[in-house]
Design a protein around this nucleic acid. Structure first.
Length: 563
DNA sequence: TTAGTAACTTAGGAGTACAGAT
DNA sequence: ATCTGTACTCCTAAGTTACTAA
């Protein structure tokens, strides 16, 4: 099977037959009821349909912090004015004089109403959704019916970038059939555009995996409709990714020796390459492509680090040669870390920073293309991101070995699994905002624990008196009562432990997102093998969707699997 | 060497369904 | 039966990588 897969990926052919029904478009705009008014400068004003629609996008977001930001407001207002009639444009000149309050209240009420729908109506909606899923959510690729991931076209709205995005608030326009490129096989039933419309193009390119594409208007990027992770094509690719990482495992010692040697190179570009690679390997940093200034939020990865992102400490907290990292990475998530490094690395960094301004590139002789070219020469298929996959997976495997105690019960073993998973998430810097309900839910759990402790001391007291009773009476009945109370104590003790484990787990997880590494970095065969070895049901580790995505691994791995 | 295009993976948050508590 | 907190699903932005052409 691997050979067949590899062959498919070397000749570039992804499928022989592909048939689907095309995308589901966003529902048409529904005009506001006439009693819901927009006010300009305190006076009600009836907007044209186009202007009203874009206005509602803003109105819906009113209680979001976004709408208070200058850039957001400026971008929104600029794009909104483009949708206005000449008269509206002449009149509406100041966003601060716009009152969307009524509109906002109306949408809030609508969402309340949706929540309050009767059971029957909710059921009806569910059935309608299911019908659409059945009709548009599947395709036939070669001999299989496969689930499509995102078969619904993104609805229009206001662009919300992450972090300090210069384009936040811009209008994301509605996608029409005329914007859509369909990809399917010649000999399939081609999807039909909605009545009275045409596709932009229908093509038959079996060297790509997407079914539908269009160009988005904010960044000019192409968006795709592709298959679900449970599909053959995604599963094989995922498997291949982990096989590449396992090949890296076999030669990583050689590579490490090599880059350590390169720290001493006469050539600056080689030293930079070697230090960057050390960071990527040791700290699991991303490659770090250059980005167009002013088009996106200012974030960096390894190759695009600037002098201002690191501070060198010859000594810090009793350790020598400490590098302090502080920068915004993907999604504007902050990376903050103080790392002791080898003396040679430290000296090299000093050299790279000499005579530079804070905003200058740390690695001025390096970029991701150069780095990946070099990696490709070291190992077939090796790129910067393989190190993240490799280090994540090997860390999970090591941590599981270290943390799993054979005598532990199932919940304690699962806690160990989560801790191993957490070690990986910390390595990869997968963070989340603490859940809004975190404090409260912690308190709730604590009171449950307190109640359980109370219950336990009660149970113990009862056991004691039953024992005393049995000593006096010396009959079968009271002996049985003692046994019964003993069991009760045990049961409560177990329940208490379970709660305490849960509390620890949750506390340690406050700001850490486990999902990303679980889904994208950890070879699922490691987890499957661990489950088999310790008799943990795989359902405790992977939910239904995850089991579908990792079906190939659940099938394949036995308890001796080694990454 | 650089810029641009295309295709695909990785990412955190919003919204919602559902399960367990009351 | 209703309420509430959580887990899961969906959404789509933001990365990486390969490739082409000037």
């Amino acid at each position: 099977v691997l050979n067949r897969t590899l062959k498919r990926y070397t000749d570039g052919v992804k499928w022989k037959f592909l048939e689907h029904k095309g995308p589901v478009f966003a529902p048409a705009y529904e005009p506001l009821p006439s009693n819901i008014k927009f006010y300009y400068d305190g006076k009600p004003m009836k907007l044209s349909l186009g202007a009203e629609e874009v206005g509602t996008f803003f109105a819906k977001m009113l209680d979001h912090e976004y709408t208070t930001k200058d850039i957001f407001r400026k971008n929104f207002f600029k794009d909104w004015r483009k949708e206005m009639t000449a008269e509206e444009k002449a009149k509406i000149t100041d966003l601060n004089k716009c009152d969307f309050g009524d509109m906002h209240e109306y949408f809030k009420a609508q969402s309340e109403a949706r929540k309050a729908l009767s059971k029957e109506e909710k059921q009806k909606n569910k059935e309608e959704n299911e019908r659409i899923l059945q009709e548009y959510g599947f395709c036939v690729m070669d001999n299989h019916k496969e689930r499509i991931a995102n078969f619904r076209i993104e609805p229009p709205g206001l662009f919300r970038g992450r972090g300090d995005h210069p384009k936040m608030g811009m209008l994301k326009r509605r996608i029409r059939p005329e914007d859509i490129i369909i990809n399917c096989s010649k000999d399939s039933q081609h999807p039909k555009p909605p009545p009275g419309t045409k596709w932009k193009e229908v093509r038959h390119d079996n060297k790509v995996t997407w079914l539908v594409s269009w160009t988005e208007n904010i960044q000019g990027a192409i968006k795709y409709i592709m298959l679900n992770p449970s599909s053959r094509i995604k599963g094989e690719k995922d498997w291949q990714k982990y096989e590449t990482a396992r090949r890296l495992k076999k030669c990583v010692d050689r590579l490490r020796a090599q880059y350590r040697d390169d720290w001493k190179s006469k050539e600056m570009r080689i030293r930079q390459r070697a230090v960057a690679l050390y960071f990527i390997d040791k700290l699991a940093l991303r490659a770090g492509n250059e980005k167009e200034e002013g088009e996106t939020a200012d974030t960096v990865g390894c190759c695009s680090l600037r002098v201002e992102h690191i501070t060198l400490h010859p000594e810090k907290d009793g350790k020598e040669y400490v590098v302090e990292f502080d920068f915004l990475g993907k999604d504007s998530i902050r990376y903050y870390n103080k790392v002791p490094v080898e003396k040679r690395v430290f000296k090299n960094l000093q050299l790279f920073m000499e005579n530079k301004q804070p905003e200058d590139d740390l690695f001025d002789r390096l970029n991701t293309t150069i780095l990946n070219k070099h990696l490709q020469e070291l190992m077939d298929g090796l790129t910067a991101k393989v190190f993240r996959t490799y280090n994540a997976s090997i860390t999970l495997q090591q941590q599981l070995k270290e943390l799993t105690s054979p005598e532990d019960n199932v919940p304690a073993k699962i806690l160990s699994y989560n801790r191993a998973n957490r070690a990986v998430a910390i390595l990869c810097n997968h963070q989340r905002a603490p859940p809004k309900t975190f404090e409260k839910s912690m308190q709730n759990l604590q009171s449950k624990i307190d109640a359980k402790k109370e219950q336990l001391s009660d149970a113990k007291r009862e056991l004691k008196s039953a024992k005393a009773d049995a000593k006096v009476r010396r009959d079968e009945k009271s002996k049985k009562a003692v046994e019964c109370k003993k069991k009760a104590v045990q049961r409560v003790e177990e329940q208490l432990m379970k709660l305490e484990v849960q509390a620890t787990d949750r506390e340690e997880n406050k700001q850490i997102a486990l999902g990303t590494s679980k889904l994208n970095y950890l070879d699922p065969r490691i987890s499957v093998a661990w489950c088999k070895k310790w008799g943990i049901p795989v359902e405790k580790i992977y939910n239904k969707t995850q089991r579908e995505k990792f079906a190939w691994a659940i099938d394949m791995a036995d308890e001796d699997f080694e990454f």
